[in-house]
Amino acid sequence: MKGLRRAGLPGLALLVLAVLAVLILHGCVADRLAAIQADWRLSLEEVAPMPPRLEAAFVRQMVAAAPRAMPTRAPKPPTPRQQPAAVPHVQELALPESAASAVAENAPAAQAEAMAASSAASAVTDLPPVVAESPALPASAVAAADDEPGPEWPASTQLRYKLVGNYRGAVTGHAQVQWLRQGRRYQVHLDVGVGPSFAPLISRRMSSDGELGPQGISPKRYDEDTRVLFAERRRVSVLFQPGQVQLGDGRLAAAPAGVQDSASQFVQLTWLFLTGREQLRPGLVIQLPLALPRRVYAWAYEVMGEETLETPMGPLATWHLRPLREAVGGDLKSEVWLAPALQYLPVRLRIRQDEQTFIDLMLEVAPLQAER
């Protein structure tokens, strides 16, 4: 008490003012950081707005069937060219001297006629062949045919999962995966809801958008949209460019060939096995570069072995794949169980942030597909 009396009211007032100044400074810094983040999200949305969602009508239920390698698109054979008709061999005849001199006098005119005939013949030879029973297709139809990626890609598919896991305690919920494609364009949407469906505590959508090519999936962008009850909505985006990727905080990083994102990686694995490019066997390691929101990983999956899972479609044989390395800094890692009898689609997914935070998705109903 005596110490406080010696300090007097002016000293206490200075101390209170100093504390208030520190608090105000921290508040201003926090507000500025929030404004910077908001500006970044706004600028990202202005530069690269989220693409509209593709539409598909899921009209048939998948039935488990023995796997078979899907045929890939064969290259187009070259257009055959017309060959000139064979010229019969003419035996040379000995001409009388008078006839020979006449031929020599008319040689320039004959050569000119021969050159003209040769030019006409070559012009006819260079013309494309005419096939009466195969009329030419309009340019729009040819472009549409060239845009079709081929039969090795699954039709648009919807899978629904039951969710269990742990997030500050046991949680339950539901999830859905939609694989959508139109020509060479594709989208993958993984929607996860923790808690009751009418008012989820946490919901997250992981979306990939890009193109299909000879080496599989080529992402153009990835969006991760998270909503937490009583908290601000948060979205991060990863943009893919030739040779590099723009991460969720705006930093640029080198992107190796074949890089995938959090959502596209599962369909890329399906495509590798469905087409026979990789043969499933215990111990097989699949190199799969992965661009997550915070960094690019030299990712790899190891095939652990076969497991039979109980599903609404009955027992299904699956192959269990597990990442070989850990994600860091809050990035997510995923284990996957692929079912050969369901076109190697994921029957089970286990997505983990750390040992105490994870969700486990198990197929809830038979998958639905669109007509090709």
Score class of each variant (00 low, 15 high):
Trp179Pro: 07
Gln182Gly: 06
Gln187Ser: 09
Gln187Met: 04
Asp191Val: 11
Val192Arg: 09
Pro196Gly: 04
Ser197Trp: 02
Phe198Val: 02
Ala199Ile: 01
Leu201Arg: 03
Met206Gly: 08
Met206Glu: 11
Gly210Pro: 00
Glu211Phe: 08
Glu211Asp: 06
Gly213Asn: 07
Pro214Gln: 00
Gln215Trp: 00
Pro219His: 00
Arg221Thr: 10
Tyr222Gln: 04
Leu229Lys: 11
Ala231Asn: 08
Arg233Glu: 15
Arg234Gly: 10
Arg235Gln: 15
Leu239Gly: 01
Leu239Trp: 07
Gln241Leu: 11
Pro242Asp: 01
Pro242Trp: 00
Gly243Thr: 01
Gly243Arg: 03
Gln244Trp: 06
Val245Ala: 14
Gln246Cys: 09
Leu252Ala: 14
Ala255Val: 03
Gly258Asn: 04
Gly258Asp: 03
Asp261Tyr: 11
Asp261Asn: 08
Ser262Lys: 13
Leu269Val: 14
Thr270Leu: 15
Leu272Thr: 07
Phe273Glu: 01
Leu280Cys: 14
Pro289Leu: 04
Leu292Ile: 06
Arg294Gln: 09
Ala300Thr: 03
Val303Glu: 00
Val303Gly: 09
Met304Arg: 13
Leu309Tyr: 04
Glu310Pro: 03
Gly314Ser: 08
Pro315Glu: 13
Leu316Ser: 04
Trp319Gln: 12
Trp319Gly: 15
His320Ile: 03
